[in-house]
Design a protein around this nucleic acid. Structure first.
Length: 402
RNA sequence: GGGCGGGUGCCCGAGUGGCCAAAGGGGGCGGGCUGUAAACCCGCUGGCCGUGUGCCUUCGGGGGUUCGAAUCCCUCCCCGCCCA
């Protein structure tokens, strides 16, 4: 149960005991445990925050248990209210399935594709009748829901709480029933869904209640709030090793410990040593962060990609050299700078282009450019800010006469 | 269904006839500095061009009053509270 977090000693002890018993039983009977992790495709990206529970799932997988990666094709329609202080938009099934399209590919960066069971909860949630819902709901009181912090806050503030939001835990709880889950993995914000809703509904259906493994939440790039795409503080899995490395380097120093503990493959002893070195001034914070970034990129993309990502970072951000590779765009002698920046996609609008020029953020071959209507003397490297680069190349074909 | 309060830029929020492209904060971006795309400091943050006391679009939707509306009126939609 290393690395778990329950916020309540009794619960922790109970879960530890039950897990031990269930593992022993599994060993005795030869029946692997059914361990599941559910992820809602509210967006198209999985991110580093998802990696934490996925790695835990992978551990069970390696021990020979059945790992189920559940895609919340139905729960996503509502969205989990557990971690949000406002109601979420209802989504359409098509939208959700479109988002889910690459989820499995992304997940297989961590999970073993050969051994992972992929399932979708619309298969059973979509089949429930109104009467079934009434039965599920009858196991809970409104007070239990209102006691939850996120609903409590909204209630006190006079913010809307929609009735359908109460269905979310019922749905997730029923997932555990449908999957006959022995263990469910989730973040600490899943306490209610896993421990209350899931276990209660399983017992009501004559099943042994699942064991909840609750893992700490990974803070996002702001270093404070839970990583989430909707908060804009996420590091997506679907990106380049260079981008991931850079985003990791922009983390505030104070979350390095959390990242080491939750994401790296390092042992607690190694982490303790690194932290002691940091404390004593033997290890530079930047260097530690570079090691963390490299380790995480290595884990997800492999050692070679991690090495290249680090090189790129040193070259572009530390030495302020040009990146090895950059997008190309045809050079046109008559194209005014403002138009060029927009057409090439370096900025979103001409107004932004003008702002960038005014702020002396636009460089050509290393020299700051001035004047909106400036045209460039020839092919070369155009740069906006520190990280937007473009190689202007002579067109391969001469422009057709006309 | 009734009464009251509310719906403002990416988010939160101030503004209750002109000084409003709209305070302040957050986020984002840029510059400086650096140890890094941390921290810190400064600036920018609707669009368009002719960069000007410029033009266009924006304050839930539609309509109106006015020389002029985020602000007033009508109407519709949505949310909260209380009542039923």
């Amino acid at each position: 149960m290393q690395g778990t977090e329950y916020g309540d000693e009794d619960l922790r002890r109970a879960m530890e005991r039950e897990l031990r018993e269930r593992l022993e039983e599994s060993q005795r009977t030869g029946r692997p445990l059914r361990v599941y992790l559910g992820v809602d495709p509210r967006t198209s990206d999985l991110h580093l925050g998802h990696v934490v529970p996925m790695r835990k799932l992978r551990q069970f997988q390696e021990l020979g248990h059945t790992a189920i990666f559940l895609i919340g094709s139905f729960t996503s329609l509502i969205g989990d209210p557990s971690d949000k202080e406002k109601a979420r938009r209802l989504m359409s099934f098509d939208e959700v399935m479109a988002n889910a399209k690459t989820y499995t590919d992304q997940a297989f960066r961590i999970l073993d594709p050969e051994k992972t069971v992929i399932d979708y909860n619309h298969r059973w949630l979509g089949e429930l009748k109104f009467g079934d819902l009434i039965h599920l709901a009858s196991h809970f009181t409104v007070q239990q829901f209102l006691a939850r912090e996120t609903f409590r806050k909204r209630y006190d503030k006079g913010d809307p709480i929609f009735l359908h939001e109460f269905f979310y835990p019922l749905m997730q709880g029923y997932d555990a029933v449908a999957l006959k889950a022995d263990v469910q993995i989730g973040g600490t914000d899943q306490m209610f869904n896993i421990i209350v809703a899931g276990r209660k509904l399983q017992e009501a259906h004559g099943q042994k209640p699942q064991i909840g493994i609750l893992l700490p939440l990974l803070p996002g790039t702001d270093g404070v709030r839970k990583m989430s795409k909707s908060l804009g503080n996420h590091i997506p899995l679907e990106t380049t090793p260079e981008d991931m490395y850079g985003k990791l380097m922009s983390l505030p120093d104070q979350v390095m410990g959390t990242y080491m503990r939750l994401l790296t493959r390092w042992t607690p002893e190694e982490i303790a040593r690194l932290e002691a070195d940091l404390e004593a001034g033997r290890l530079h914070p930047r260097d530690l962060k570079m090691r963390i970034a490299r380790e995480i990129v290595d884990m997800l993309f492999g050692p070679e990609a991690a090495r290249r990502a680090e090189e790129h970072f040193v070259r572009v951000f530390q030495k302020r050299d040009l990146p090895e590779e950059m997008p190309e765009y045809p050079y046109r002698p008559d194209q005014p700078l403002v138009d060029l920046l927009v057409d090439a996609g370096l900025v979103k609008s001409k107004s932004e282009a003008r702002r960038m020029i005014e702020q002396r953020a636009v460089r050509f071959n290393g020299r700051v450019l001035e004047g909106f209507q400036t045209t460039l003397p020839g092919p070369g490297v155009l740069q906006v800010g520190k990280r937007r680069f473009l190689r202007l190349v002579a067109s391969e074909k001469a422009p057709s006469a006309g």
